[in-house]
Design a protein around this nucleic acid. Structure first.
Lengths: 234, 234
DNA sequence: CAGTATCCGATGCGATACTG
DNA sequence: CAGTATCGCATCGGATACTG
């Protein structure tokens, strides 16, 4: 990308960070992804070779290190202290995005599997009963897909194929509505009332659902009045 | 640049902002630049056509508006509310840059004229005597150049050619050292002691100098231990 | 699983020259 | 002063195929 030929700290930071995909890769690492395939799940649209290239650049810049994983078999990526300190930048960026880049959730930006991956990693596991719980998600409307979430102690798994266990809870959700809830733009209760989401299962699991489903880190940020147009890069 | 195909607010913000030059253009506008030529002075390395293109994109996105200037003759650029709210993002970005992208001030990133432009806009005018004051800056070492700063009431001007007035104060400064002072990495007093900077003029102007010269907005941020390598985008 | 290798078409960037 | 116009070259995106 090259230099801006400026001594300004904003220019220096931009040389390192303001490149396509870089903020999203850092976001994934800050949210706890360590392995290459985890990064790919969180960034389904990045070309593989480009992900590799960005990781190598970030490594040689000193924002992350690639090291032997604890099990000693695979390698994993970890942010350095410099990388971790980007949390403040990303928080500001996300807050601004939530406030201003919020005109609508475009169909091409919805992705049930990505949503499941994000829900998985923010699950409040300790609020679920201390046994295996299987939840079946049926996305309806646009992009009909079915997923199974299997929570067992500390372990949470998302499956795209029926795992064979009988589900304890069924979540039937309109695809758009589930995204809107995750982003904090629609209340779960309102969605249930209007029939966009339906929960079927034992009472205690149904009532607990809103609590163990932690939403997007920016769900609590209220959108600004009037939004910005995201679509006009050209 | 295109979409990331994600609903995440960080992704949405990045689609708008994480493009080459965009953060720096917003920085200029936040610091008060309004006219096209002012933007060019603050961004001497941007190709003209690219600056135009970015401004048009930012306008259609809704981060800035182009309107008739107060004098009614020229047009000027102003941030909208959405644009102004980027201040928090830029502050985080600059703070991170000051802390981590600080290994050295590279010769190719020094630029006396850009430094003068930045000093000009953060001058504490009210601390100077209420008459015309002319200060001559002689940059020495790398990039020898001379500038005149003419402060007259609310008006501050930078000249590259001798304005004809007899200077009230002479600042003889090593180019690198002056940049380091601006960035808060070198104390003015230390630079004077070691001969990197010399002030010549009436006592009251010489002693007032450190006060009316406001430094970079990030000068007060202490660099982190260990820096990041800025040069490896490849 | 975690990459590497290659190829192609589209776009982005930067430099230079021109203009009302 | 505030842009247009043009033109290479590099990079990006996406697809596909291969590997320890």
């Amino acid at each position: 990308m090259g230099t801006y030929r400026q001594f300004c700290p904003i220019a220096k930071a931009s040389e390192i960070l303001a490149e396509r995909w870089t903020f999203l890769i850092v976001r994934e690492l800050l949210l706890g992804s360590r392995r290459f395939s985890e990064l790919e799940w969180g960034l389904p649209a990045i070309p593989r070779s480009l992900l590799v290239h960005r990781l190598r650049t970030l490594e040689s810049t000193g924002l992350l290190v690639r090291a032997q994983a604890a099990n000693g078999k695979t390698r994993e990526y970890r942010l350095t202290e410099a990388g971790n300190e980007l949390a403040g930048v990303l928080e500001q960026l996300g807050t601004w995005g939530q406030r201003w880049a919020n005109d609508e959730i475009r169909p091409q930006d919805t992705d049930p599997s990505l949503l499941m991956w994000n829900m998985r990693r923010r699950l409040n596991k300790h609020l679920l009963p201390p046994r295996r719980v299987v939840i079946q998600f049926d996305f309806e409307g646009a992009k009909r897909e079915t997923y199974w979430l299997i929570v067992d102690r500390d372990d949470v798994e998302v499956c795209k194929t029926n795992p064979g266990f009988e589900p304890d809870l069924f979540v039937r959700a309109d695809t758009w509505a589930m995204h809107a809830i995750w982003l904090g733009r629609l209340e779960l209760r309102d969605a249930q009332r209007s029939g966009l989401i339906e929960l079927v299962g034992p009472r205690e699991l149904v009532t607990a659902f809103p609590d163990w489903l932690a939403l997007s880190p920016f769900a609590h940020v209220p959108p600004a009045r009037g939004a910005v147009t995201v679509t006009s890069n050209q």
